[in-house]
Design a protein around this nucleic acid. Structure first.
Lengths: 212, 212
DNA sequence: CTCGCCTTCATACGCTGGTATAGGTGGGCC
DNA sequence: GGCCCACCTATACCAGCGTATGAAGGCGAG
């Protein structure tokens, strides 16, 4: 618990990313967010956004469904398949029920038909950012943990998988055909490398790694 | 793990519950499910369904949004507030985007505008039941656990809360102003009452109880 | 009042986990 | 060859957990 991972208090300011091919609307939306003190990045299509990459800070997407090249729904599916899932708010002038259901099933935070009231969009963004704050922190923690796990030796990983299954040191030793003391050695080495503080913290972190 | 809780193989057959005030459509939908071997219960309104209660078996709801008395969305909200949440598939002739978004945000599995193809409804029900199988098993396990927990003494509960916080027996003893051996006694008593098999199983079960 | 339950405590033993100390083996790299 | 690293082992010690045995006081129900 007492590691160098940023907690809620030290999170970077959130960023609202607007992607819409309608320049006027995009500008208006950006102004709306700026007027309430939110930082905004805006793009006219999916490609330039993907080119710059998802920023390493809490963010949410405001996405037009219908765009030239890659549609909003396609972008959503792509991000989902890449396991990079900032919350998404869809806006569209050509809304229909199946489209909205598909977007929501894939995890969108909201789906707003144009025209919408400014307040509705702001509410949706607040909700998205509330959600994102937790997701981002969890994500950062996991990335940090995976970074720490990256210099575990193969044998240490093997021991961790067994620990994850709830086996006793004795059982692990028997299963791997080595002495119990050796298991303890690898185990405590892994304990240190993962910066675990207590036994239960260790178990929690091992489970978090979701070892195959 | 080796307790008397039904696993996936011993689940009761699922039940599809259809609630729609249109008698003809309700009958047709019921026939559709019967034709693929699914059991069906159908109601003309929310009230008679609520009167009989949610059956103690895996089930899903096929719900008309617009009905006299209580609407489908109201029923969804009511079930949600009661923490009884079988998966819901909405069907409606008067669909609009905000309505579908609201339903999906509240956790609906799908939202089908009438008219829909039989296959779409069947697909949605398969998805709902796939989801429901896991939810139901988890639910049963939790209910069984709570049943076991119901004859813990007040002192045992107090010890479990401290265990949940990851405290050592020594620390718990100090906090409660009693001897460590007494803590061990209550702890092992609770261990037996919860039918825990191993230390990690015990921890898992304690966490599952979400003690205040 | 007696019985049963909840609570408390002491002594003592065994098992598990973790650490420290002190080695031995084999493989890859400069 | 020398060095580093991963891997393996042994002995010994300490702390925590769990259990067995034995014992005591309080308190409510029958």
């Amino acid at each position: 618990m007492a590691n160098a991972i940023p907690d809620d208090a030290s999170q970077p300011e959130p960023l609202v990313i607007v992607i819409d091919d309608d320049d006027d609307l995009r500008g208006a939306i950006a102004d709306l967010f700026l007027s309430v003190g939110l930082e905004v990045a805006s793009y006219g299509a999916a490609a330039p956004f993907l080119a710059t990459g998802i920023p390493n800070r809490p963010c949410c997407l405001v996405l037009d469904v219908r765009m030239p090249e890659e549609s909003g729904l396609e972008l959503q599916a792509r991000l989902k398949s890449e396991s990079r899932q900032p919350p998404i708010i869809f806006i569209t002038a050509h809304a229909d029920v199946p489209m909205s259901v598909r977007a929501m099933k894939q995890g969108a935070i909201n789906f707003l038909p144009k025209p919408f009231r400014d307040q509705d969009l702001l509410d949706a963004v607040w909700e998205a950012l509330r959600y994102e704050r937790e997701r981002w922190t969890r994500d950062q923690r996991l990335m940090e943990l995976r970074r720490l796990a990256s210099d575990l030796t193969p044998r240490e990983l093997e021991i961790l998988k067994a620990v994850d299954r709830g086996l006793l040191n004795k059982q692990i030793a028997h299963e791997l055909g080595i002495a119990e003391i050796t298991v303890k050695m690898h185990r405590s080495s892994a304990f240190r490398k993962l910066r675990a503080t207590t036994a239960s913290d260790f178990i929690r972190k091992v489970k978090m790694l979701e070892l195959a």
